[in-house]
Design a protein around this nucleic acid. Sequence first.
RNA 1: CGCGGGGUGGAGCAGUCUGGCAGCUCGCAAGGCUCAUAACCUUGAGGUCCCGGGUUCAAAUCCCGGCCCCGCAA
Length: 313
Amino acid sequence: MAAPWRIIFMGTPQIASATLAQLLTGPDTVVGVVTQPDSSAGRGQKSFASPVRKLAETHAIPVLAAKKIRTPEFLQSLRAWQPDIIVVVAYGRILPKAVLELAPQGCVNVHYSLLPKYRGAAPAAWTIINGEAEAGVSTMKLVEKMDAGAIYLQEAISLSGEETTGSLQAQLTPVGARLLLETLRRLKAGTLSATEQDENLATLAPILKKEHGLIDWQRPATEIERRIRGFDPWPGSFTHFAGKMLKIHRATIVGTERRGSPGEIIRADAAGFWLATSSGVLSLEEVQQENKKRLAGVEFIKGARIKPGDRLE
RNA sequence: CGCGGGGUGGAGCAGUCUGGCAGCUCGCAAGGCUCAUAACCUUGAGGUCCCGGGUUCAAAUCCCGGCCCCGCAA
């Protein structure tokens, strides 16, 4: 049995802290954690520590939350921890070459797609939006080109077609944690060979922006429904009614024929809140007007003065 | 002190600006109608208008304080 490795863990959100929690149960030693600095957020602009920071502090692991990472001081701090390997999970920053080469074993990354497909910041979301039949997790060696490093291990799961990005990530998190521990174990044992990615099969999963959430009713119902799931929980999907923003949290397809014109309400009563698209009819199951609570579509109708023929846009 | 919206029978809302009978869409109960219904008709029950104070002949509505919920932004 080889000696435990000294690991630096870099990550920020909940998905990273859940993975770190698993890593802490493994045979190796997390000697330091790097995360994004606390940020002000929420009503009142209260300051929030990242989930990774909170977890590290409860385990008394040293935390580095540098704002600037391309500095000699940052590199020096990392070196002082004398890592064998650096583990990166949703850290939120592009790492400079000097960091990639800092540890003898380099950097290993957990990426939530079946590489080489869906390289980039939002792999789970685009997997759903594009209607893929399966999703997955890959561990790979970090290189300078984004998510292009050689793959260590990979595991696929099949999709039901009802996942949201949030639920899919929740499903993939434990898979990723397990793959990570397995990757480390076999790397240390010297029984793991990395496989180069086929560049010809590479696709991109670009970072999501707020504007992605504006629903284009000109798209087919199937596509809109997938986007609503893919943008949940962020940035969310929204449209407008009576000059106010209306978030659409959940929708289902209730017809494939063309009815009405895209964006037109074709039913608004106790039986349903149905909307026309360019192809197919969507039932809005859960909505939320700005400043209001989430409501079932039919509940929203009771209070909103809304009727067939009105439009969302 | 980041910006803003809200709290009204069981649900969702209007009414508040401009003080003057507690209202709408549902739900619930009873009855009726129909071959039939998530349909329709009739009737009914159900209220601390978030809490506390103030102004007023009169407060859901105006003023002051408090609690709670939510949207934006990040």
